[in-house]
Write a protein that binds this DNA or RNA. Structure first.
Length: 572
DNA sequence: GCCGTTTTCGGCCCGACTGTTTTCAGTCG
């Protein structure tokens, strides 16, 4: 029983209550509790054991009892009773964009629809149009939503897959008989979305490895157990393939299974031109003798190439660059000197400025740019003029007392539909820097949305364009924009573009970074942190920057404090 | 279901958008 189980059940209760039609404030209380637990800096088990849960603002008597019951007995009667009223599969319907709890309630009560499949069928049969509150367009939208949902099925965020892989590696590392163990596949290439996890092990004793792998706590189902390959589903539903390889073959297999497919096709083509044949077992001369290599880097060397970091293996020019020694020296986690884009209790963050500052300092950063939401972002508690003045005063005071880190005054200003920023110029110019982001009116035409952002990029006070497409991976497409034109405008006006490191966003997309860099654009890696944990997302942003060929010099938060201040003053 | 308090019931963030309606409900952020 861990925090995630508790959070899951509270969420499900909230959703079931909504479907049932209970007071919205009741379900909100459950969602509120979820948020509180997610942002908890203390161990939840300790809180339960010491009976301190109810001290948390937002958790009262009822929730305290329910959480404690679930934690101590492993089940919760209230939830079981609620579940008995509705099939649990109803909750899956909520994943379809455009379908909320009210619609689920109607679909279930009037048409007996319980699953996505049934819903899809009912749409095709034209049976939704007659329902109260539904119509032609709703039915069409739901059908499209189902299509989108299906597209994302079986896909996972990099951060989720990374976490799961870590657990498995930890479990296997202690085994004797393992000579080498590595992650391969898209996870090693640090793709933003992952289909499955590939793990390679070099060992002379495959049986021991396979037994241990398929026997871990993380296993939900075993799909197959073989001598060279076994597959499982983890508790989170991610498929994991583990391959055991003879130690001599490890470098070839690692290269082969890291991919990408396109990279390997190009690489094999190159090998063939050199009279060589390559596959997962080796690199063979025409007489079929294997060219022995100790690691991947020697393998690339034989092919006349510099070592190509896995992140770059997407067949986007990396092989040519490796051949003529022009691969970039990719940015690393250690290059990041300071942080921009964090939220605090002033808007929708859960920690104070001081807490965030101390964490940033502890992590070795030398500056921290605070960016709460601006006044138009009602839903996130955006800052009014008074709040801003109060925040500035607080920042000034903290800067006086804290050493080795400097807090910078920023704001994440909404870019309003007309492209203007959310405060008058007299106020805007007083900030150290400004991130401009789109948070509303996502439905503008491509033309209008592009114009909107271009106008913002022409605002002298805007420093950084935040999460440029607004996408949420696996759940929401970005808004329609002409990214090429936006990049041109950013380059012309010397505006920085954010690589939002939140694992749900990873926006802007790495596929565009190399082009942007060639256009002379500078980037910033921003965690969009809403709590202390958020700082740890920076590494995901670094991964994306690496995939986009970026070096430390391309990313402004690799600059030291003095340089950054000079950089910001340049615009004034 | 939680909170606060002028101690026990009333308020709980707010607005845009869409599609369905004919004045509003549901969804989303």
């Amino acid at each position: 029983m861990d925090k995630k189980n508790i959070i899951d059940i509270l969420n499900r209760i909230g959703e079931l209550l909504e479907i049932k039609g209970e007071s919205p404030f009741k379900s909100r209380a459950y969602y509120n509790a979820v948020r509180i637990l997610e942002n908890l800096n203390e161990d939840i088990e300790t809180l339960i054991k010491e009976d301190r849960l109810k001290d948390l603002k937002g958790i009262g008597d009822a929730l305290n009892k329910k959480i404690t019951e679930y934690y101590t007995t492993g089940s919760l009667k209230y939830y079981e009773d609620l579940k008995a009223e509705f099939p649990e599969s109803l909750l899956e319907l909520l994943n379809v964009p455009g379908v909320g709890p009210k619609k689920v309630g109607v679909l279930y009560k009037q048409l007996g629809i319980k699953t996505i499949g049934e819903l899809e069928y009912a749409c095709i049969e034209n049976r939704l149009v007659e329902l109260p509150g539904f119509g032609e367009k709703t039915q069409k939208k739901i059908l499209e939503g189902i299509g989108q949902y299906k597209k994302y099925q079986g896909k996972y965020l990099y951060s989720e897959a990374y976490g799961q892989a870590g657990i498995i590696l930890e479990h296997l590392k202690t085994l004797k008989g393992i000579r080498k163990i590595e992650i391969a596949g898209s996870l090693r290439r640090r793709k933003e979305v992952i289909g499955d996890i590939d793990i390679l092990v070099a060992s002379d004793e495959p049986e021991i490895v396979m037994d241990a792998f398929t026997d871990g706590d993380y296993v939900r189902d075993v799909i197959a157990i073989g001598e060279t390959k076994s597959s499982i589903y983890t508790n989170y539903g991610i498929q994991v393939d583990l391959r055991v390889i003879k130690p001599d073959e490890f470098p070839y297999a690692l290269q082969y299974f890291t991919g990408s497919k396109e990279h390997n096709v190009s690489l094999r083509h190159r090998a063939k031109e050199m009279g060589l044949k390559m596959n997962e077992y080796g690199l063979f001369k025409e007489d079929d003798t294997n060219i022995l290599v100790a690691d991947e880097s020697e393998l690339y060397e034989v092919l006349g190439l510099e070592f190509i970091p896995p992140e770059l293996r997407e067949d986007m020019g990396e092989i040519e660059a490796a051949a003529n020694h022009s691969l970039p020296e990719l940015i690393t986690d250690e290059d990041i000197k300071g942080i921009f884009h964090v939220h605090t209790v002033y808007s929708d963050g859960s920690c104070t400025i001081e807490e965030m500052a101390h964490k940033a300092k502890e992590l070795g950063y030398s500056y921290l740019g605070i960016t709460d939401h601006s006044q138009s972002a009602y839903y996130a508690g955006g800052l009014k003029l008074d709040d801003i003045l109060r925040q500035w005063e607080e920042i000034d005071n903290i800067n006086k007392t804290i050493s080795d880190i400097r807090i910078l005054k920023g704001i994440e200003s909404d870019i309003l539909p007309d492209g203007s920023l959310d405060y008058p110029d007299e106020l805007l110019k007083e900030f150290d820097f400004i991130i401009g982001s789109v948070h509303s009116n996502f439905g503008l035409s491509e033309e209008d949305m592009t114009e909107r952002i271009i106008r913002a990029l022409n605002n002298p006070y805007l420093t950084i364009l935040g999460h440029p497409t607004g996408r949420l991976l696996l759940s929401r497409e970005g808004y329609r924009i002409d990214m090429r034109r936006i990049m041109e405008e950013a380059a012309k006006n010397k505006k920085v573009i954010e690589i939002n490191a939140n694992p749900y966003r990873l926006d802007m997309d790495w596929r565009l970074l190399k082009t942007g860099k060639e256009m002379g654009i500078k980037f910033v890696i921003g965690p969009d942190a809403h709590n202390l944990q958020g700082f740890y997302d920076v590494k995901y942003g670094v991964g994306i920057a690496r995939k986009g060929w970026l070096e430390a010099a391309d990313v402004i938060n690799c600059m030291g404090l003095d340089d950054i201040i000079r950089e910001f003053r340049k615009g004034e």
